[in-house]
Each structure stands twice: as C-alpha cells, then as structure tokens.
Amino acid sequence: MNVRETGLIGRRGLILAGGAGLLVLALPPARALARPSLQEAVNGFTGGKPVETGKVKLDVPPLVENGNAVGVTVAVESPMTAGDHVRRIALFNEKNPQADVAVFTLGPRTGRGRLSTRIRLATSQTLIAVAELSDGSYWSSSANVIVTLAACIEDLS
C-alpha cells in the first residue's frame, strides 16, 4: 500500500473521517506532484496516436474492500490470429503515486485477448486499460473504483 503504515492514528482518523479519499496526502509531496496525469500516461504508451473507445472490456469491482489487492480483468475483442491480434495491453491509474500499473505483451499464441491481475489502489479513482492491436490502432475502456479499507489496522512498530 502506498501509504505510511506507521501512522495508525492519522490513518484511522482519515478512515473514520469518511473513507480513504485522503490517503494520498500521506505520500511525500514531491513525488505526488511529479506523476503524469492519466492522459499523459496514455499518450506515452500510444505515442500520441488517437485512442478509440470500444473493443476493450475493463472489469473491476466498483467497490473494493481493500486497495491492496484489487482484481482486474481486461478482455479485448480480437480473433488473435497472426494477422489480427492484440499486441499489448496497458493499465494506468489516476491517483497512485505512479500512473503506470502494468504493460502486458500478447500475440497470436496467447489465444485470447484477455488477462487478469491484482493491483494496488491508494484511493478511490479511475482506471484505464488501453489495448494496442496489430494494425497499430489503440482502444480503451475506463472504470471507477471506490476503495474502502480494513478498520482494525495494526501498528507496525
């Protein structure tokens, strides 16, 4: 989790003050400011090429119990043949200290344009999945996730 684990009181205070929305404040400010926006991160992946909506299905639970392990499934409509397949799938987030989550490389031998993983979300935010197809086109889908946290958080010390 991208927060100080030692700040029990502070953290509990935040949680009880109404959800995890403020947790990102516990991060070193320089880093929090340095991260690119979601749009900049997507542009970095596509090289500025236009991104169309569709073909990609991003599946995340709208409400998660703990931001430390949020199950994500991305499925892209594609025959996955040598001539027409998904080349890469990238996942980006809006409010973690870094925009990048993961980039997956696929090909015709992958069989399906589909994968699942588990990711960390520092707070409630938007996620976006962008797929690069073998014809050089980009497709995306985004989703909002609300993160609640466990209530009894122990002190590490």
Binding site: V70, P97, Q98
Partner: peptide, 12 residues
C-alpha cells in the same frame, strides 16, 4: 507466449 512489465502498483 505472454509477458508483463510490472510497476509498484501491482499487488504483493
């Protein structure tokens, strides 16, 4: 057949 590049936002 498949590969991934992970960043710190991937779970433990």
């Amino acid at each position: 057949v498949f590969s991934a590049e992970f960043h710190p936002a991937v779970s433990a």
